[in-house]
Write a protein that binds this DNA or RNA. Structure first.
Length: 445
RNA sequence: GUGGAUGUAGCUCAGGGGUAGAGCUCCGGACUGUGGCUCCGGCUGUCGCGGGUUCGAAUCCCGUCAUCCACCCCA
């Protein structure tokens, strides 16, 4: 029997869970500081809720659930595991609109599932940490979302991350201006997006394979590639003059985001990337991605989706959001050894040794006394008579292996004069103290 | 869906036709109020699974499964 978890799924042992909870805690704290409220939705959605929202590739990766009963025979599916947290949010907004505030700001940290092939930092079950703001077309929303994301990474100890931004309307305008036929917009963007991986020549080759005329391809390359201009604002204004109305609108919004972000923690990290496209089909405005040099994929991404909620309710409600990839943050933090001591804390502050056989009640009472005083206490679960082994050695060894910093012993001497022997497992120092003073000494040394 | 690498002890890995090894872990002892250091002794394997070649396969061949990595796409 294979005892490993299913492909792309993982078990989280106590040390893993502590790290995950540490990062999730930081994220939730930051989001709450911005007034975002928590939301949870079911793991399973009706299949029709998810289908047709993510684009062709996304639809293919949805984990479907077979119909119960007779349906199982036919292989038909009517339910599916959620693919992201954005579409379920759109469904919730469409359903509960009248109960939700005019501007609904929510954060959500839950697992999502994708029938993808696992890879570094990529799993079939993984947590996303989403923040979204519903109900406003103002770029204030984007500035706050990016600022909150930047606060998260700073709080976790990152200094070298980039927040890359682009705009769907600008992209469409640039494609139109270069002479790319509408039906090739999608493929052309995908190819442009790979520039950092396959190089300029690779992009040139792939564009011509797709049937783009060489001069169109060259125009595109000039437009979308190369380092951002030194005077970004002047460049954007100049571009705006050349492009269609969509392009003008996109550039105006990007300029606003850059201006607004100057007064937030996102400012120093914000970079324009003219080739950033993003795969999900529901984006309509600014799009963003958070990157760090040592990871091929992104640590987070998002964008504005003003027409997604309308797919459920018929009424278009503007919305924008960003999703952080918990697993990828953990992968990078693990490689860089960025977890503070507090994130990998020991299971208990003190372990109580069972010195005498058949005196478990005494030790349990002692442990209870400490716990009532707020100390995290582990009681060694076996008394010496249980296995006939040497009393001290294995208990101390166990405490050391578990990384418990203090061991408390009540042996013959201690029992006689009402004291406790307390040993610091790190330094090896040991002292006998009155039992009543133990908590005080643990707290203040 | 495509390509590559790797599957041998609980863990990390060596061995590439003649019946299985090291280090660490674990257990016991040196050391019967106390871990870490040192020394001595000991346990552990369908060599991923199925088939083929061979007198003989962990080793060579075919298939298969799993894991990791890359592509696609994405968090």
């Amino acid at each position: 029997m294979n005892t490993g978890p299913a492909r792309g799924m993982r078990d989280f042992l106590p040390e893993d869970v502590r790290r995950r909870q540490f990062v999730i805690g930081v994220i939730a704290d930051v989001y709450q500081k911005y007034g975002f409220e928590p939301l949870e939705t079911p793991s399973v959605e009706n299949l029709e809720t998810l289908q047709g929202k993510y684009g062709e590739e996304g639809d293919r990766l949805i984990f479907k659930i077979l119909k119960r009963g007779e349906g199982a025979e036919t292989g038909q599916a009517d339910l599916a595991l959620r693919y992201d947290l954005t579409v379920p949010l759109a469904r919730v907004v469409a359903e509960y609109r009248s109960k939700l505030p005019k501007f609904f700001k929510r954060y959500q940290v839950q697992p999502v599932w994708r029938a993808d092939r696992p890879q570094k930092g990529r799993f079939r079950e993984f947590y996303q940490c989403d923040v979204d703001a519903i109900g406003s077309t103002s770029m204030t929303v984007e500035a706050e979302l990016l600022s909150a994301a930047a606060d998260v990474f700073v709080a976790l100890g990152f200094t070298d991350f980039q927040i890359v931004i682009n705009h769907r309307k600008l992209l469409n305008a640039v494609l139109a201006h270069a002479g790319v036929p509408a039906e090739l917009h999608g493929p052309a963007l995908v190819i442009m997006d790979k520039a950092d991986k396959i190089g300029i020549d690779g992009v040139r080759t792939e564009l011509s394979e797709r049937g783009l005329a060489p001069n169109v391809a060259e125009t595109l390359l000039e437009q979308l590639n190369g380092t951002p201009p030194a005077d970004l604002d002047a460049w954007m204004t100049a571009q705006s003059a050349v492009l269609n109305d969509d392009g003008k609108a996109g550039i105006a919004e990007l300029q606003q985001v850059f201006t607004l972000c100057k007064s937030t923690s996102a400012g120093p990290h914000l970079v324009l990337d003219r080739s950033l496209a993003r795969g999900l089909s529901y984006y309509t405005g600014p799009i963003f991605e958070i990157r760090v040099a040592d990871l091929a994929g992104s640590m987070g991404g998002g964008g504005r989706y003003d027409r997604l909620i309308g797919m459920f309710s018929g009424e278009h409600i503007p919305a924008s959001g960003i999703s952080l990839g918990l697993e990828r943050i953990l992968v990078v933090m693990g490689e860089r050894k960025m977890f503070p001591e507090s994130a990998v804390s020991a299971p208990a502050e003190v372990m109580v040794v069972q010195w005498f056989a058949n005196r478990t009640a005494l030790y349990l009472e002692f442990a209870t006394e400490l716990r009532r005083a707020g100390v995290r206490v582990e009681l060694y679960p076996e008394s010496p008579s249980d296995d006939g082994k040497k009393v001290g050695e294995r208990q101390f060894k166990y405490a050391a292996a578990r990384g418990i910093p203090f061991v408390a012993v009540i042996g013959g001497d201690e029992l006689a004069n009402g004291t406790v022997a307390i040993r610091n497992m790190k330094t090896g120092e040991q002292q006998s103290v009155p039992r009543a003073n133990l908590v005080e000494i643990l707290r203040h040394g």
